[in-house]
Amino acid sequence: MRASITRGPILEILILIVILAIIPLALMGNAYYELLAATVVLFSSMVVAWNIIGGYAGQLDLGAYAYMGVGGIVTAELWMKAGIPPLLGIFVGGAVSALIAILIGIPTFRFGIKEVWYALLTAALVVIFNNISRLLMGPFDYYLPPTTGFVYLKFNSYVIVYAIAASFLIIAFLVNFFVERSKMGYYFKAIREDELAAEMVGIDTRRYKLYALLLYSFLLGVMGYIYIVIAASYSYRIFDSSASLSIAIMGIIGGLGSVEGGIISSMVLRSLGEYFRSTFGSSLPGLDLLLYGAVLILIGIFQPEGISSLINKLLKRKG
């Protein structure tokens, strides 16, 4: 076998599309599983989007659900309050998320400021939004209108919801693909490897970190509405700290900068997590998060380059 996990991107995209197309067939029209598959695939696309800021640019962003939640709520509210169809609204949602991200990025991306403040601030951001939105929205669940149709990105069939989640995964994959092969990708990685050395080859590190953050937060903001469509409703609970952490966790377990690793880790672990949740959810809540935490520590200690390097090693040994 010659195909290395880092090579043959066109082939990879094709494989990804084929796998994503086979999944609904395998589910044999079971609506519950279709919805679950959509959840897992959307989660995966968030992890792939995270790879831009975390994997390439090396900034430990722990605020995924803040950007996602804001984008989703903005899109939903625009539809319900102003009649703007979500197909358009998702871009506004993405833009609002990106705007918030810039406000976070500007103070923390200055050169020479410790990485950890960015991690702290983004972790805090989720909690802040949770609190603020609870103040503004109360403890209620808001349901989307029953209307369906393409401009609302809302359908009666879960297979189509799944297909939309799957296309977001492919979009996120493609964005990564183009980033990695552009000047931006080189500069992001240089910043991740050594920020001072990156400055010394003339990189405006702050500007490039902001670019990474913009791409990532915009993608997540756009995905937010799909998250709400899958859940059918939204509340302040969309700003979920643990879920936010698990996005970064999957990215790290997959291997920083490895889209494939991120997809594999998120799909496998999230599916396993969902299985735990449905089997032990009432007696042992949080078993899924326990699993993520444990795998993360093991990876951090024994395989800090993630499962992608593990797979690469295996492939090398065989080939």
Binding site: Y186, Y187, K189, A190, R192, E193, D194, A198, I203, G257
Partner: peptide
């Protein structure tokens, strides 16, 4: 740039 190839580092 440890996790980049040498040619990628120089290309940067």
């Amino acid at each position: 740039f440890k996790k980049m190839s040498v040619i990628d580092a120089i290309t940067t």
